[in-house]
């Protein structure tokens, strides 16, 4: 029997082609509310390969969590609607797949961890029961085998005294430990893709680093594709291979992590990087991006960032810039990306 703690070969019907796991193409998501239609995602394209970590970066309301939920298929529809686009997993479009077949991909193929681990764990059951449930639901294991696997997984995510704590309830764990348990549940069935939706936001800084390094370790050990969703530039620097920056439901810049930190190609990315406090610039005022993100029901014409952009010209208010190649492995959606790059 394959153990859950060691990476296993994928023997399922889903085989990645050339290491390509997930392809999101021209994804649109809108929410139909009483007050109108909010366009949360307006044409997002990206792909994730085996063993690669893609970070999706953006502030609240930029559509990064909605993207994750659309990939997982856990958006409540209605009010949400996906008018166009595709999410292909190993060449199979998840959006057109029958719900029952799609459900079976959640867990063994694509899995997800959430921001707040306390509220993501069921308060009425011991944590071990909840991990064991994954094996019983998807693999039809009996109770004692599933519990043994749960203990092994808890040990893998470094929970001390796992054997004793397997019967403890979520509220008896600290925040970091809960997130470890959530991670154990998410990786229990050896998913090929793991989506982490702000996994460290609810934790304090020292624990954040531990959780991030655990995620990185697991990703490398199992050769997973990891999608890391965050608003924290500091968190992604060490872990991510590539970064996609989202603004108002679009990707405005996509590049390898080193390139983006060295030289941003979009004024928004530049603004984000400038707003990180730096030790070597003591005594200066912290620069911030003025204004607020646009209302998703009334996204401004042209470039959505133009009202807040220091470089905005007439063309920015008129024409929406497309996401185009601006260098090797990097794309940006700005009329003046050359100028930003060379600044």
């Amino acid at each position: 029997m394959a153990t859950a703690t060691a990476p296993t070969a994928h023997t399922s019907e889903y085989q990645p082609q050339d290491g390509l796991l997930l392809e999101v193409e021209d994804l649109h998501v809108e929410f139909h509310t009483r007050y109108g239609v909010a366009k949360a995602i307006n044409g997002v394209n990206f792909s994730v390969r085996q063993g690669e970590c893609l970070a999706i970066l953006g502030e609240s309301g930029s559509g990064k969590s909605v993207t994750a939920q659309a990939i997982m298929g856990i958006l409540d529809m209605p009010p949400a609607k996906i008018p166009q686009g595709s999410v292909k997993y190993c060449g199979h479009d998840l959006l057109t797949m029958p719900e029952d077949r799609r459900r079976k991909t959640r867990g063994p193929e694509i899995s997800m961890i959430f921001q707040d681990a306390l509220s993501s764990l069921n308060p009425t059951f011991p944590v071990g029961w909840q991990i064991a449930e994954m094996f019983r639901e998807h693999r039809g294991m009996n109770k004692s085998d599933a519990y043994a696997q749960a203990v092994r997984l808890m040990e893998r995510v470094s929970i001390p005294a796992a054997k004793q704590r397997v019967k403890a309830y979520p509220h008896q764990f600290s925040g970091g430990m809960r997130q470890r348990i959530m991670i154990a549940m998410a990786i229990s069935l050896d998913p090929a893709v793991l989506i982490a939706d702000e996994p460290t936001t609810a934790l304090d800084v020292t624990v954040q680093a531990q959780i991030m390094s655990l995620l990185q370790e697991l990703q490398q050990e199992r050769h997973m594709g990891l999608i890391l969703i965050t608003h924290d530039l500091g968190v992604v620097a060490d872990v991510a291979d590539r970064i996609a920056v989202m603004y108002a439901g679009r990707i405005v810049e996509q590049a390898d992590v080193r390139d983006i930190y060295a030289k941003p190609a979009h004024p928004y990315t530049k603004g984000l990087l400038d707003s990180i406090p730096r030790l070597d610039l003591k005594g200066q005022e912290l620069s911030a991006i003025g204004g607020l993100p646009p209302n998703l029901m009334h996204i401004p014409p042209g470039c959505a960032f133009n009202p807040r952009c220091t470089m905005a010209q007439d063309i920015c208010r008129r024409d929406r810039p497309e996401l185009v190649e601006v260098g090797p492995h990097r794309k940006a959606a700005c009329h003046f990306s050359e100028e930003v790059l060379n600044a």
Binding site: I74, R103, R106, G107, M112, S120, L121, N122
Partner: peptide, 11 residues
């Protein structure tokens, strides 16, 4: 969230 999480984990 735990109901959402259960959905995301294929329940």
């Amino acid at each position: 969230d735990y109901v959402q999480a259960a959905r995301a984990l294929g329940a």
